[in-house]
Design a binder for these strands. Structure first.
Lengths: 166, 166
DNA sequence: TGAAATTGATTGCCTAGGCAACCATTGTCT
DNA sequence: AGACAATGGTTGCCTAGGCAATCAATTTCA
């Protein structure tokens, strides 16, 4: 194992991956949400449709993991998508616990329709990056994700907090 | 302006920066929160203390921008930090609208105390990265952030959504 | 085989955070 | 100076999402 890259002693958030990735998220999300502000679907809903569209998720549980949402929240999210006729629920034949989700033609159209403004935004933001740099960034993030996915998602073992929340 | 890096036609979320950065966030946040699960402060509270500690934020409005939170939510967040004796509010002399925030010694200790486990986590995750690669990733993210900060945070101009939310 | 643990999904309940209205203060433009 | 816009902060209200309990189905393992 190589020398660690970060040390607590001279910690500087501006050089920490946690801070930087979070900051990217905090800066981009408002722009993405603005794109959906006058549409009849939210950014989160669009992400869900895209997740189904691209095969990243096939069930509610997939979607929950994908969005890092609670299972309950995801059920309600899917409810909305079903209500609007964008998603279809179908009890699985192989494993009767799972409910398979699929996009309706309208859902598919709704997902695809909002891709261009998002792509435009990112092209705008990365306009000063070279092709090489963009590629590098994508590759590094992909490796980081692979490493994180290998890491067991540890759940909060101790439910009680130290101090009373009151 | 160079050739754009992304196109809507052959969109693939696994190669999109929005998807990748969001995924990093979704995968890391649970780990970070697990670190605070048995403590008497939350991850968000710790981030706030760190923001004050590192001078990234000096006021409630700063903190709101920093966390990408609503001003109201931030007021209540600060309330909690003040109640616990970690943060002090002080009306500014120069601009009597602003309330300057500062860490108490306890607040400073609380912030610093939780740095090591976070750093350990990131060292663990990046253990297979070379020093060069880590540096590169940090540099690219930093440039991305600079570009995003230059971009005006567009607010939702049209308040009404297209379809009735009901 | 059968008991226990695991997983998927749903629901009720509760909290963190978004939205809007509000006031005070400051900056800007004429 | 005075009107108007912009900013900082607080509060009430509401919603999205977290937690826990529950049930059904499946897997694991003694």
């Amino acid at each position: 194992m190589a020398k660690p890259h970060f040390s607590a002693g001279d910690f500087n958030c501006r050089k920490s991956l946690g801070y930087l990735t979070r900051r990217v998220q905090n800066l981009t999300t408002p722009h993405a949400e603005a794109i959906f502000a006058d549409q009849d679907l939210s950014f989160t809903q669009w992400i869900s449709l895209m997740g189904l569209s691209e095969g990243v998720a096939k069930t509610s549980a997939d979607l929950a993991r994908h969005l890092n949402h609670d299972a309950g929240a995801t059920t309600r999210l899917v409810d909305q998508l079903v209500d609007r006729g964008w998603v279809k629920r179908e009890r699985s034949k192989e494993d009767r616990r799972v409910v398979n989700l699929s996009l309706t033609p309208q859902g598919r159209a709704m997902a695809r329709m909002h891709v261009p403004p998002i792509v435009d935004f990112w092209n705008h933001i990365t306009s000063e990056f070279s092709a090489q740099e963009t590629k590098q960034l994508i590759a590094l993030l992909t490796r980081l994700i692979a490493r994180l996915e290998a890491e067991p998602a540890r759940e909060p073992l101790v439910k009680e907090k130290k101090g009373a929340m009151k």
